[in-house]
Design a protein around this nucleic acid. Structure first.
Length: 578
RNA sequence: CGGGAUGUAGCGCAGCCUGGUAGCGCGCUUGACUGGGGGUCAAGAAGUCGCAGGUUCAAAUCCUGUCAUCCCGACCA
């Protein structure tokens, strides 16, 4: 491709709307332009990078025996009604009511494709002999994000690879899952990404049924909890702690329980300000409804409740925070004044609660708190659970070493779905004994845009992008320094043609711009290899070859240059092969 | 959806407080010089000051409303 024939609008200045490096660089390097909040046009360089990532995904899906199809973005709302997700998606689902003659057609722009593909399979698969099967597509997904942000990392319209596996048994599901997991590792390695597979919230199947693939990055929205010595890694929702139930015989100094007036102090923060104490000194009492039964959950004041853990501890199907009426009827007080002392409902506590001596808690009376609350004397516990989000420094569940935290960008998610969709959409097969069974499904997503944005976010220096050769929009940037020099241009044109002839993806900077402009643009757009043809070098019969991150260029004889570049490109690719 | 900020030329910004001819840098066009890390000189083009209403002799500037974008939070199958 000739620079003069394509559109690469590079920018010297940082756009004011872009905060994080990937957003700034993708705009400055001419990869993307914003149309509106959460919707971006991919310009030639950006789109080529996306296509290269997509091609790697296709190759690895193929190796894992997944087959590509293409499903509509337009989907009938009725399918979402059948799975209950019309309601569950809420405002995230973009609904369209379209007139056709005298009737309204209700549809949605697909936020994902479980419904569509399960519907397809329910009609096409009848026998266990047709399974297992894994299908995938690369499609634009539409989600009405409440708050699109971080450039291309969170948008309302994005390109996703989604694969779905269909099997007759858990064994088949596990095989498909493992194949996808392995394929994902190969994909992200080939894309040159630094990634961590982490355990994620797994829903109804439990166990190791879900992993997310994260790119560690300061600006990532997800929180990863990990342990260096055991290799344990999980997202914050999922991460367990290695804490255990402490001594439950009693706590505190023996100071007398005392009720204090705390007017309008219904939050941890307000109570701390009023009583001049720290949140760590408080017992936070949250009233939940677990399968419609009220339960009080005790946590240390500075800790965050984890509803997944609470649900599992209670062995409940669903848990949600109780409404104000329920709280009043159980505690006898307004919101913010619940406490364990004298509370007449089931109470479960986090491991850290018994360790708080002379604690402060609500008195189950509006505008009243207790101080010097102690286990054994003032309230009782039979055991404790892990009910809160992990904190930095908590013991690792495997090694007991302190857990560390890092932010991450989620680029992939593999998930064992089970029969949620096959049951609601009647996707069943006939087994060997003529029994009708629901198909067991898995789903596996990759955010294609996020591969590109994640690379931009994590692979750059102060001059610009640094692409891995596999995803780089071009492999080689060929720069003739003086386009007015006919002799030089003849050499350059020949090299351009020869490199293309060797299968090298080369961008030819044929602009009549000054060297400084070309060099700075070259660094900004981050093509892995740069070949410079200049008048001085040519007199000595050499051109300059430089890797994007190399300190200095190497001089290569003109006659060997093409072969040299071909070898370097091959070597760089080999380094990233899975 | 709560909190905060910003809309002036393609990009980055000043001007607004204290109303009175629309500014700067980069980029763009033309010409000359120049030619290995965003060069110099000269001459240009380009803006309904986000939009609507109001106050005023007069509004980029003051007032009201509205739209858009960004940031923090809530949300994110």
């Amino acid at each position: 491709m000739r620079w003069s024939k394509t559109l690469i609008p590079t920018m010297k200045e940082v756009p004011s709307d872009a905060e994080i490096p990937s957003h700034q660089l993708m705009i400055r390097a001419g990869l993307i332009r914003q149309l509106m909040a959460g919707a971006y046009t991919y310009l030639p360089l950006g789109w080529k990078a996306v296509q290269k990532a997509a091609q790697i995904i296709r190759e690895e899906m193929g190796s894992a025996d997944a087959v590509e199809i293409h499903m509509p973005a337009l989907q009938p709302i009725e399918l979402f009604d059948r799975t209950g997700r019309n309601e569950a998606f809420g405002s995230v689902l973009i609904r369209l009511d379209v007139k056709r003659g005298d009737r309204d057609v209700h549809m949605a722009l697909g936020p994902t494709h479980e419904e569509v593909i399960t519907d397809l399979i329910s009609k096409q698969i009848k026998s266990y002999r047709q399974l297992p099967l894994t299908l995938y597509q690369i499609q634009t997904k539409f989600r009405n994000e409440e708050r699109p942000r971080f450039g291309v990392l969170r948008t309302s319209e994005f390109l996703m690879k989604d694969a779905y596996s269909f099997g007759t048994s858990l064994e088949q599901l596990n095989e498909a899952y493992d194949a996808m997991y392995a394929a994902y590792c190969r994909i992200f390695k080939r894309c040159g990404l630094t990634y961590i597979p982490v355990e994620a919230e797994s829903g109804p199947i439990g166990g190791d049924a879900s992993h997310e693939f994260m790119i560690p990055a300061e600006n990532g929205e997800d929180h990863i909890v990990y342990c260096e010595s055991s290799g344990y890694a999980a997202n914050l929702e999922r991460a367990e702690t290695g804490r255990s139930t402490p001594d439950l015989s009693g706590s505190g100094s023996g100071a007398a329980l005392e009720k204090v007036h705390t007017p309008n102090a219904g939050s941890i923060e307000a109570v701390c300000k009023f009583l001049k104490c720290k949140p760590e000194q408080m017992i936070k009492t949250l009233i939940y409804l677990a399968d419609d039964q009220p339960v009080a959950v005790l946590l240390r004041g500075d800790h965050e409740a984890n509803e997944g853990k609470i649900r599992r501890a209670l062995e409940a199907g669903s848990v949600e925070l109780a409404d104000e009426t329920t709280i009043k009827s159980i505690t006898g007080a307004g919101i913010g004044f619940a406490g364990p002392v004298g509370l007449e409902c089931r109470i479960i506590a986090d491991h850290d609660v018994p360790l708080i001596g002379d604690a402060i808690s609500g008195a189950n009376e509006t505008d009243q708190h207790y101080i010097n609350v102690n286990l054994g004397r003032d309230y009782q516990l039979e055991t404790t659970y892990d009910l809160r989000n992990a904190c930095e420094g908590d013991p690792c569940p495997k090694s007991g070493e302190p857990l560390k935290f890092v932010h991450g960008i989620e680029v992939g998610h593999v998930f064992k779905l089970g029969t949620k969709y096959s049951k609601s959409l009647n996707a069943v097969f006939l087994d060997e004994n003529e029994n009708r069974e629901p198909i067991i499904m898995g789903c596996y997503g990759i955010g294609v845009n996020r591969i590109v944005a994640g690379l931009a976010e994590t692979k750059h220096d102060d001059k610009g992008l640094i692409w891995p050769i596999t995803v780089a929009p071009f492999e080689v940037l060929l720069i003739p320094l003086n386009t007015g020099d006919e002799e030089l241009m003849q050499v350059a044109e020949k090299m351009y043609a020869d490199l293309q002839g060797q299968g090298i993806d080369v961008l030819f900077d044929d602009r009549a711009a000054r060297p400084g402009v070309k060099f700075n643009d070259a660094d900004l757009i981050g093509i892995p290899f740069r070949v410079v043809i200049g008048g001085k070098g040519l007199k000595d019969g050499v051109v300059e070859f430089k890797g994007r991150t190399a300190e200095n260029p190497e001089k290569v004889p003109v006659d060997n240059a093409v072969q040299y570049v071909v070898d370097q490109v091959a070597a760089a690719k080999a380094e990233l092969s899975a």
